[in-house]
Design a protein around this nucleic acid. Structure first.
Length: 590
RNA sequence: GGAUGCUUAGCUCAGCUGGAUAGAGCAUCGGCCUCCGGAGCCGAGGGUCAGAGGUUCGAAUCCUCUAGCAUCCGCCA
């Protein structure tokens, strides 16, 4: 409970095992009881605390401090523990042994594959469904979070040892294509479709959508063209391919700028031939029935449906009156495909929080169909502008992602030029452009990923570009500083190895922070929250800065110098790896 | 009417699934450049954790109610 067993959180796992064993022996229990190991919030309470004694006091009918003190006597013998003491109402405060901690850091430093992030005991096959833009629509800020979050989750899950399939579930098969086919005939500009494909498709789509609202004949012909497309009409199919290919070029450009890649591009169209089977199965199993011509799932009529859904009167529609399928149908087919084709253990959907209800219904239906794969909706909040409303341009339109990235790079370039003029940055002329990109794009990504994903957040250029506090440039700066130290020492940063000595308090607190890196990455992957990593990296950078300020590294001699260089190297490597897990690039010199 | 999420310092946000005196950044105020990168470091002030009940050794965290904000709910994705 709370504690994560056998999931790769090595440090906490080791200490937790130790504590449980001690608890069991101390109290002669027949089975393990949770030790409730937690990192302390205040260094005065040691490094970790055990809260289990208080929890057990009632059931064992013994005073908590007595249990705690029995626990303490068993723990003090362990080489990992320097000090264990009872505190307050029954806390056990643990202080780790310096040499033991240092040995772990030396080990992490030797681990050039993962910098101390251990693989999970039981790797899973996990599909991460993210980004998923619509064909014929410009990517806007709304797609930013799904794209960045999803990419980071892929990196995190892969880092901890899972087999991960990043899948871009394109919206390439919906109702919009009927409108587009009819619309292009009516208003299409073939030349523009070549030069500015997405703009042109978007323009035509908007016209078509408006027309369909008031012109029933037009709407009808759009539906007819969609039906033709979906039943394999060669002309419409050719048009569709044209639209998709044109859009794909624009998308690729954005993904390249963001350094986001996918293993699969299985859009909605990929599941088209499965849809009749899905619907037939739902009908056969008695999960869906016809209503007003459409095929619907009525939760209230299904005995095994979740109680919460039963209360909602709205049905889950899987086939429209005109026979066309919907995204709900496709989503079911997708689940079955991921189960059967990828043999996935988990499927993660990185989609905005407003769609939570859809996924609740989808997952419930999958379960009723006998799907046991773990299905998760990783939702997220909106990006807000100054007014606290969803971010828009001054004309009230959605901000195009490409424009946003342009502005990020422009602002970071401007800031870099200022700093170079002041002489505070050491970026060579030829590296300025690349640095502006790493800092600008990195700032956008980091700002997003450093937020708790579920809440809305306020987009603020100044905060992002000010380079103060918990922001990407601060971390990139600290990495560059580490590199600069090694350059000055004429030592190889990549291969440096030594065992640190945790003598000074600032050395020790930095060392403890470094030792927790692996645990943090695992926790972030497990709960699908990259901000856990971001938070930790920020604390790491602060801890390093404080250490750096107080103690000379290159000015020290002998083992002290080697020790401090070891702490410095591991800091740099974890900053680089941690930022990498967020999709943020480091800069070797800035 | 039903559902989901949110409400923590002046502002922007954390708070590791129930632990000790609720933490950062920005802003404000005060220190620190003979020294490896000052985009830095150290410190101070600032809180009825929306409100009210409840659960228990212990609640920002869990349960109930209330208020406010956001989003969703039959043929869009």
């Amino acid at each position: 409970m709370g504690m994560c067993y056998a999931c790769g959180m090595k440090l906490e796992e080791t200490l937790d095992d130790l504590s449980r064993r001690a608890l069991r022996e101390a109290l002669s229990l027949s089975e393990d009881a949770p030790a409730l190991l937690r990192p302390t919030q205040d260094p005065r309470f040691g490094d970790y605390q055990l809260n289990g004694a208080m929890a057990l006091a009632k059931s064992l009918k013994r005073p908590p401090r007595e249990i705690a003190s029995a626990l303490v006597t068993r723990l003090t013998d362990d080489p990992a523990v320097a000090k264990a003491e009872v505190a307050g109402p029954g806390f056990v405060n643990l202080t780790l042994d310096d040499a033991w901690l240092a040995a772990r850091l030396a080990e992490d430093l030797r681990d050039h594959e993962a910098d101390g992030v251990h693989p999970v005991a039981a790797p899973e096959t996990i599909v991460v469904d993210f980004s998923s833009p619509n064909i014929a629509k410009q990517m806007h800020v709304g797609h930013l979070r799904s794209t960045i979050l999803g990419d980071s989750l892929v990196r995190l899950l892969r880092q901890v040892g899972h087999r991960v399939i990043g899948d871009n579930h394109l919206g390439d098969w919906g109702t919009q294509f009927g409108l587009l086919i009819v619309g292009m005939r009516e208003w299409g500009d073939e030349a523009k479709l070549v030069s500015e494909p997405v703009d042109e498709l978007e323009r035509v789509y908007k016209l078509g959508k408006a027309r369909a609202k008031e012109d029933e004949a037009f709407a009808e012909s759009a539906r007819a063209e969609l039906a033709k497309l979906q039943s394999g009409d060669p002309d419409n199919l050719a048009l569709w391919k044209h639209f998709v290919a044109a859009t794909r070029k624009t998308l690729d450009a954005i993904y390249e700028r963001l350094d986001v890649t996918f293993d699969e591009w299985l859009g909605e169209s990929a599941y088209d031939d499965m849809l009749p089977g899905v619907v037939a199965a739902l009908r056969e199993k008695g999960l869906a029935r016809e209503d007003d011509g459409a095929l619907c799932v009525f939760w209230g009529e299904l005995p095994d449906a979740p109680p919460k859904l039963k209360k909602s009167k709205a049905p889950f529609i899987v086939q429209k009156r005109d026979g066309a399928f919907l995204y709900s149908t496709t989503d079911i087919a997708t689940i079955l495909y991921r189960r059967d084709h990828f043999e996935a253990d988990r499927s993660i959907y990185v989609v905005g929080a407003p769609q939570a209800f859809h996924f609740q219904q989808l997952f419930a239906l999958a379960e009723l169909m006998g799907v046991t794969m773990r299905l998760e909706h990783v939702g997220f909040g909106a990006i807000l502008g100054d007014e606290g409303k969803v971010l828009r341009t001054s004309e009230g339109k959605a901000v195009r992602l490409a424009d946003l990235l342009d502005e990020a790079e422009e602002r970071s370039l401007k800031r870099i030029e200022e700093a170079r003029a002041e002489g505070t940055l050491r970026i060579a002329e030829e590296d300025v452009k690349a640095a502006a990109r790493a800092i600008g794009i990195g700032a956008v990504k980091y700002t997003d990923l450093a937020q708790n994903r579920l809440s809305d957040y306020r987009f603020d250029w100044d905060r992002m570009i000010s380079f103060k506090g918990n922001a990407a440039p601060y971390l990139q700066y600290n990495y560059a500083r580490v590199r600069s130290i090694f350059e000055k020492a004429e030592l190889d940063f990549e291969t440096f190895e030594a065992t640190p000595q945790l003598v000074e308090p600032l050395e020790r607190s930095l060392g403890l922070r470094l030792a927790r890196f692996g645990d943090v990455v695992h926790r972030a992957a497990e709960v699908a929250e990259p901000h856990v990593v971001a938070e930790h990296l920020y604390e790491l950078a602060r801890s390093f800065s404080a250490f750096y300020k107080e103690h000379t590294i290159l000015g020290a001699e002998g083992e002290t110098r080697a020790s401090r260089l070891a702490l410095t190297a591991l800091t740099g490597r974890q900053l680089r790896r941690g930022l990498g897990l967020l999709g943020v690039d480091v800069i070797e010199r800035m």
